[in-house]
Design a protein around this nucleic acid. Structure first.
Lengths: 86, 86
DNA sequence: TTAATATTTAGATATTTATCTAAATAACTA
DNA sequence: TAGTTATTTAGATAAATATCTAAATATTAA
């Protein structure tokens, strides 16, 4: 959960997640959407990958990123248990 | 959402939230549960309060903290929309 | 009023993090 | 093969953060 919360604790990364919700994108396409250098975006993608929130696949010259929503199940349940106060 | 993610991006604060899920506690009682100084716990409580995840009420000499789960609704819905990939 | 207890505020410090530029790696194209 | 494009890695830096001790504030009790 630590890496998941860490990944989500950044506005840029949350926006990347929302972009990837719409469709898979390669690193360059993602970087275009932000006023941040490509290396910085690459770093953000790495943190999202560490949290397993995104997966990446090399496609020729490009690296395509996809959202992995299954990992959100844990977070979802964590919140649910909190909402069920005893 | 920023302050909420920030608040949850710390193991100690998440543990405080889980403690308060069980019952309301004052600052001293909360601090007892951790090997961290009282001022540090006070600081964590402040961050949780800024995120509106907890509320505090002075009761005589003590300050009682309660979990506010309504604020989790936003987070809950954010996750839901992500899980509904188009 | 004085002493004790509970909590927060102030100020300092070490660590983490977001960002940058420059360089390295990998893959395509002429 | 040489040049171009896509992406990541390395290294540096400024800002944010978690923690501490010491001091301030507020409340209760003797």
């Amino acid at each position: 959960m630590n890496s998941l919360f860490k990944a989500l604790n950044d506005e840029t990364r949350r926006q990347i997640v929302e972009l990837l919700k719409e469709k898979d994108m390669n690193a360059g396409e993602i970087a275009e959407r932000f006023n941040i250098s490509k290396p910085s975006i690459s770093h953000h993608l790495d943190i999202l990958r560490q949290a397993d929130l995104v997966t990446s696949e090399k496609k020729g010259q490009f690296v395509e990123y996809s959202l992995n929503t299954t990992i959100l199940e844990d977070l979802f349940n964590w919140i649910l248990t909190l909402k069920n106060k005893p």
